[in-house]
Structure formats: C-alpha cells, structure tokens
C-alpha cells in the first residue's frame, strides 16, 4: 500500500495550479479516490497537484437565483451549510449520505464529480438538479451542463489539464419536495442504487418532476421517462408506481458481487418509488 514516487505541489493560486495541470499534473481534490488508487498502484501520476490550499475554490454563495459552490467545498460543508439546506435541500441531503464522517470531512463536490464513479452519491442529485459545472484550464474557462458533463463510467467532459472550479445549482422552488434514497452497498458504502427526486406541484398536479439515478448503469442519468409519466398526474401512489417502474428504461444495469443486474434494476424501481413518494409528500 505504498504509492509510486511522485512529485507533489500544493499551489495556493488557481492560475498557478492550472499552469501545473497544463504541464501534465494530476489534480488532487479530497483524495478519497485518488489516494487509495495510488496506494494500490493502480495509478502512478508523476506529479500530483493538490488543490486543497486554493482558498478561492472553497465557498458557497448565492447569486441571483443560483447557488455557487466552489469545487473544493467538502461534503460536510455542503451537508451542514444553512444556505444549501434552505436553498437546495436535495444537495445537502445527498451529501449527508456519502461515505462516513471522515470521508465527508475530506471529500469534495468537485473531486467526486470529476471522478465520475458510477456508484457515487452526488451525481444522482446533480442530475436531478440540472446543475452546471464551471470548468477551467490554462487556456480558459467554460460552462458545461451536467448532462454533457458525465460521459461514461469514470469519463467526463473534462479535457486534460482542465478542472471543475465551481458547481452552479439553481435555487430550489421553496414549494418543491425533494428526496434522495439510497440502497447502501454494505462494504463500501457506495450506492447500489441511489435515486434523487424533485417534485413541484401546482393546483394538485405534479408540474415538474426530476429524477436522477446513480449506481444502476455505467453513469448517473436522468430518468426522463419516469419524469414524464409523473408530470401532469396528481402524484398518487399509483402514479408514482408507474413512474418508478420506468426508472430503468433504456439502461443496461450493472452487475457485481453485491447486486445482480436484475436485482439492481428492481431496486432502482423500489428506491425511485420511495424517493418520489417522499418528494411528493414534501411538495406543497
């Protein structure tokens, strides 16, 4: 459990960091995935650029209808932030499910998203929330929608030398109901499946449904068929069941020691049902 030799730098300035990344450095955020991978020698970056000292990447603020979270904001900061809890409760709820206390104190929202683990907790909510990522490299900045960001298993829209600097989250409609429900893999704590749901109601009808799913397929995704089935309904148990049954539509389910593809698919439906029920009940 000893990593290969590597160069380590911990710049305090973003520009400096981007320069180092441009010349081949590997970004280190909270280190909750990269460090174990390095210790197992499954990765051997020559130069690790620790982003942990860049104060400018750690913030949560509200601006004109959106929340902005710096990429190096820890899960615990998200989970416990009064601002996130009131303006975007789904994200805070999702953060509270990640790993354990130690992991939440170290792991960051940017690091988690950039790693794009197919069973990570955050991406389900990031999908349901339709967030945007602010990316930066030495050659400039750009903004990418979450749908374009997650490309495949461990694969994102990030180009070499590029990092997430900020996650932009729309402020939640105060009347919306949200929920993140997760089946926990007993060894790792990752999601066997995790479903994030956002429901807005008006006049007794579901006007907007957003469902993000993690753990089920090669990457987190929006279950748009389920959303469609629910929108326009009254959100009764039967409506929810129908929508939940469609959550796995078009997805080839993962299989591993802890859950076969069939079981995962079924659990995605069960947990979608649970997340939707809670979200519907919370929507006012």
């Amino acid at each position: 459990m000893i990593a290969h030799i590597f160069e380590y730098s911990a710049p305090t300035d973003l520009k400096e960091a981007l320069g180092q990344l441009a010349s081949g450095g590997k970004p280190l955020a909270g280190g909750m995935s990269l460090i174990p991978i390095m210790k197992l020698r499954l990765a051997a970056p020559e130069h690790v650029v620790d982003l942990g000292r860049i104060v400018a990447l750690n913030y949560i603020r509200e601006e004109a209808g959106t929340l902005h979270a710096g990429a190096m904001t820890t899960h615990y900061q998200i989970e416990s932030s009064p601002l996130v809890r009131s303006r975007c409760p789904l994200l805070a709820e999702a953060a509270s499910h990640i790993g354990d206390v130690q992991v939440r104190n170290m792991g960051t929202i940017g690091g988690s998203a950039a790693h794009a683990d197919p069973a990570a907790d955050y991406p389900a909510s990031l999908m349901a929330l339709e967030v945007q990522f602010r990316l930066a490299s030495s050659s400039g900045e750009r903004t990418v929608s979450v749908e374009d960001f997650f490309v495949d298993t461990f694969a994102t829209a990030l180009q070499p030398g590029e990092i997430i600097t900020e996650v932009i989250i729309p402020v939640e409609d105060p009347s919306a109901g949200v929920s993140y429900q997760k089946m926990v893999q007993p060894a790792s704590g990752y999601a066997i499946v995790g479903v994030a749901a956002r429901i807005t109601k008006s006049g007794g009808k579901v006007t907007k449904a957003r469902v993000g799913v993690t753990g089920l397929g090669p990457k987190a995704f929006r279950a748009k068929a389920a959303e469609k089935l629910l929108e326009g309904t009254e959100g009764t148990a039967a409506d929810i069941a129908k929508a939940a049954a469609a959550v796995s539509e078009g997805v080839e389910s993962n299989t591993d020691l802890h859950a076969s593809a069939n079981y995962r698919t079924q659990m995605a439906r069960v947990y979608a049902g649970r997340a939707l029920s809670v979200a519907v009940s919370r929507a006012t």
Partner: peptide, 17 residues
C-alpha cells in the same frame, strides 16, 4: 492480481465500456 482483488465492483461496467 490487484485488479481482481479491488476491481470486482467495476469489472462488469468497465468490461462493457
């Protein structure tokens, strides 16, 4: 080897990929 011991969770997904 190491891949088998630590990678079973991802074997299916990554093989497909």
């Amino acid at each position: 080897g190491t891949m088998a011991a630590v990678g079973q969770r991802l074997l299916d997904t990554t093989s497909k990929m």
